[in-house]
């Protein structure tokens, strides 16, 4: 029982500016453990543009380019092109963005990079809202959630955008979901991405205690419950057609167990739980059909 299950090396330093219990910071820690020092980051406006620290500091010991909100993917592509043009072929370039920079404003540039199959890894740490600007809804905000722009008496009334399916439709080599609660699976995916040429995207479920109105110690717990309730399935798609479920949830917990620990769902009633449960069941069923059909 006494072996480390993830790499020991730390490339992200302590002293960064993430809130207590921020899973977005934890996700970066994991990624850098795998990618190591031969890595460059493109980071758009998001919590990470604060977490990394103000000038003249940085919290990661790899080069990091702060870029405009909607340009993570293309800045990474540009960096990669610039390196290759100089004959530097052994440096991995990672775009590291929030859900707003990914599902919303940066969507077009991601689609461009995916369609061209640019050789980058795109990571979205998904905290399901615009946290940097104070918890506004994004198209990754789930149905029923409170945010400052979807107040409790009129919470989000549309489901979360299905990013992975859209990226898979670009027929890119590798796209996956992952969770900070399952670091071993996440590490494996980073390794796979590191060893795959072309466009890769990993969608990481990354709870934000501040924005979810939740105690910081519940960050990992909530991420685990999202998987165990089937709210957030952990799977991957190779070349846009080969589906693989990475974490099978045979006996799912009711969605309420996930929802009730977060303040952002406090206004929901039993009826709302029912609607959400039905949505989750239907989405899971759809995914299972794909997993069985497209092996």
């Amino acid at each position: 029982m006494s072996k480390l299950t993830i790499p020991q090396e730390e490339i992200m330093s302590s002293g960064h500016l993430a809130c207590q219990g921020c899973a977005g910071a934890l996700a970066m820690r994991y990624m850098l453990k795998v990618f190591g020092k031969k890595t460059m980051l493109a980071v758009p406006a998001c919590c990470w543009s604060v977490i990394d620290g103000p000038w003249p500091y940085s919290a990661v010991s790899v080069p990091l380019f702060h870029t405009a909100f909607e340009t993570a993917a293309i800045t990474a592509s540009g960096l990669k092109a610039g390196l290759v043009a100089q004959g530097i072929n052994d440096v991995n370039v990672v775009a590291w963005a929030g859900d707003g920079g990914t599902f919303d404003i940066g969507f077009q540039a991601i689609s461009g990079a995916a369609e061209r199959n640019d050789d980058i890894l795109y990571v979205v740490y998904d905290n399901e809202a615009y946290m940097n600007t104070g918890i506004q809804r994004s198209s990754a905000t789930p149905y029923g959630a409170w945010t400052t722009t979807t107040p409790a008496n009129h919470p989000k009334d549309r489901p979360k955008k299905d990013l992975v399916e859209i990226i898979a439709a670009h027929r890119v080599p590798f796209v996956a979901t992952a969770s900070v609660a399952y670091p071993e699976d996440l590490i494996k995916k980073f390794e796979k991405a590191k060893n795959t040429k072309g466009f890769k995207l990993i969608h990481i479920f990354a709870p934000c205690p501040t924005g979810w109105k939740m105690a910081p110690e519940l960050s990992i717990e909530s991420a685990r419950l999202a998987v165990q309730t089937r709210v957030f399935p952990v799977y991957e798609v190779e070349n846009g057609v080969h589906y693989k479920l990475n974490i099978n949830v045979k006996n799912p917990k009711p969605v309420g167990e996930y929802l009730k620990i977060q303040g952002r769902f406090r206004h929901l009633k039993e009826d709302d739980y029912k609607v959400i449960q039905e949505n989750v069941d239907r989405e899971w069923e759809l995914l299972m059909r794909k997993v069985e059909t497209f092996k």
Partner: peptide
Amino acid sequence: FTKVESEHSAMASTVGSSAAGA
């Protein structure tokens, strides 16, 4: 030559490449 999907990306890509030293 990166055939980008918009001018916004054209400049962002150019910024990235230049920042990398090209």
